[in-house]
Design a protein around this nucleic acid. Structure first.
Length: 466
RNA sequence: GGCGCGGUAGCCAAGUGGUAAGGCAGAGGUCUGCAAAACCUUUACUCGUCGGUUCGACUCCGAUCCGCGCCUCCA
């Protein structure tokens, strides 16, 4: 079976290939840079990172655009409260966003773009819509008239009633003709940041930035557009309306949405006290890779229930894989190649690839890896795993890690150097030889305090960082 | 009310018309100066509930209960 994804637009699993047969043009809705990234955000961004990596694994080139929303109501409020310009205010969080996402090893999209750098593009798109008679002016703001876009609702599969202007709503009482109409350009308000444009002084509505920037960098029809499920309506529905009413072409071929994350079975919210930023978790001592592992391990279309027990389980599971890699690289195996092992590795690769091809089934992909690990560990114990089998096993791990990226520990700055570790291990070996176990254990304890774990094996002592 | 996602062992979770992957936790064992690591055995006669279709369903159909999300800028 070929690579396929679930498309929100068609509500079906469909084979995927980029429209030009070469480069995937993908747009993901990035963060609103008004706060530190939380684990709910990170769930979405992690699933998009897995998608990125899998598309490349499958040989496609990638042109991935992600926006930073750096102007909206909250930002304006917060910036005013902090006595800063919106630029200074959002800069802090934009920087923090990339620091945080780098820690959980999210690849940076090929193009990252800020809303405030694309005001002319947005204005121009709104003008196209004006030209197509899809807009109207009300109290200085420009609105999109959804009656001009009959397909409105096709993404969220909603049939909106009462689309006839004035039929059910006394338009005189409202600034919109229809309750579902949405603002493209907001008239300037006293004390708010604004731009002087042909549309008048004001600032962009929420949705227009994505349509404008996506089309600027990716053309009128994207291959994939991603976001969290909460964005299906109204955000993505409105993006479609704006883009398609302007161009007359499909805005995106695939719409891929990540389900929400819950915390201890409940919606994550500040008021429930179960709201966690990545920084909160790292402050509690969890490795960023463990967070990544946990977020990646549940398929993206399933709600993920985040718990600290789950995070601890992720730590252990990840360590199991790292221990396996360590064993693979440090153990000595008898010469030769066991065809059974070669075959076993091939099966694992097939299963791994089939799982991810199937709408990024990460849980099943992990299952394939763990089964392989168990089987080959057993073979190592029994002596059936030979030196010539190491390459195939390492190749599988490399394929796995090119997607999951959790095997290499994050080494803190100022950590003890490899040579110092080796020197202490040598001293400990001497102590052990003279049966000075007190000194031997002392060294192990000392290294442990510095985040280094020693393991004695038949072939000598091996070590790893915590 | 409308739209959508889901209910599988203590927890997380895959799967499928043919008799329940994997991870974590638990129990017992092997190995071991100790500690790890690793392996073995063990933990769902059962897949929310009730009907139906079928030789056979957890998997298909119907009904029903429960959880979650969206339907006013929250990933």
């Amino acid at each position: 079976m070929s690579l396929r994804f679930y498309n929100t637009l068609t509500q079906e699993l469909a084979p995927f290939a980029p429209q030009d047969g070469k480069t995937v043009r993908m747009y993901t809705c990035g963060p609103t840079v008004w706060n530190f990234v939380h684990i709910g955000n990170l769930r979405s961004f992690t699933s998009q990172d897995i998608l990125r990596r899998w598309l490349r694994y499958r040989g496609w080139e990638l042109r991935h655009v992600m926006n930073l929303t750096d102007v909206d109501d909250r930002i304006i409020q917060q910036a005013v409260a902090a006595g800063q310009t919106i630029y200074d205010y959002t800069d802090t969080y934009a920087k923090a966003f990339f620091e945080d996402t780098a820690k959980v090893r999210l690849e940076k999209p090929e193009i990252v773009c800020k809303a405030t750098d694309h005001i002319p593009e947005m204005v121009s798109l709104i003008q196209s819509l004006e030209h197509n008679d899809c807009t109207y002016l009300s109290e200085g703001s420009v609105y999109f008239r959804i009656t001009k876009f009959p397909e409105y609702g096709k993404l969220s599969h909603t049939h909106f009633e009462g689309n006839k202007a004035g039929a059910r709503v006394d338009t005189d009482k409202y600034d919109k003709e229809n309750a579902r109409d949405f603002v493209l350009w907001k008239a300037r308000k006293e004390g708010e940041h604004f731009w002087d444009t042909p549309l008048g002084a004001g600032r962009p509505g929420w949705h227009i930035e994505c349509s404008a920037m996506a089309m600027k960098y990716l053309g009128e029809t994207l291959d994939i557009h991603c976001g969290g499920v909460d964005l299906v309506f109204p955000h993505h529905e409105n993006e479609i309306a704006q883009a398609e009413a302007a161009t007359g072409k499909p805005f995106s071929r695939f719409w891929i949405h990540t389900e929400h994350l819950m915390v201890e079975g409940q919606t994550m919210s500040k008021s429930l006290g179960n709201f966690y930023t990545l920084r909160d978790l790292l402050d509690k001592g969890y490795a960023p890779e463990a967070v990544r592992y946990l977020l990646a391990s549940v398929p993206y279309r399933k709600q993920l229930n985040f718990t600290f027990d789950g995070l601890k389980a992720a730590v252990t599971a990840m360590e199991r894989l790292r221990n396996y890699e360590l064993r693979l690289t440090t153990s000595k195996f008898a010469d030769g190649v066991n065809p059974k092992m070669t075959e076993r590795a091939k099966t694992a690769i097939d299963q791994f690839e089939a799982a991810l091809d199937d709408d990024l089934n990460t849980a099943e992909a992990l299952g394939a890896i763990f089964e392989f690990v168990r089987d080959t560990n057993t073979a190592m114990d029994s002596g059936e795993f030979l030196a010539g089998d190491v390459t195939a096993a390492r190749d599988l791990l490399a394929r796995f890690d090119s997607i999951f990226d959790v095997l290499k520990p994050t080494v803190a700055g100022g950590a003890i150097s490899d040579t110092d570790v080796d020197a202490l291990i040598a001293e400990r070996a001497a102590a052990k030889k003279s049966r000075n176990f007190q000194r031997s254990d002392e060294i192990r304890k000392q290294l442990l305090d510095q985040g280094v774990i020693l393991e004695d094996t038949k072939e000598g002592t091996r070590w790893k960082r915590k």
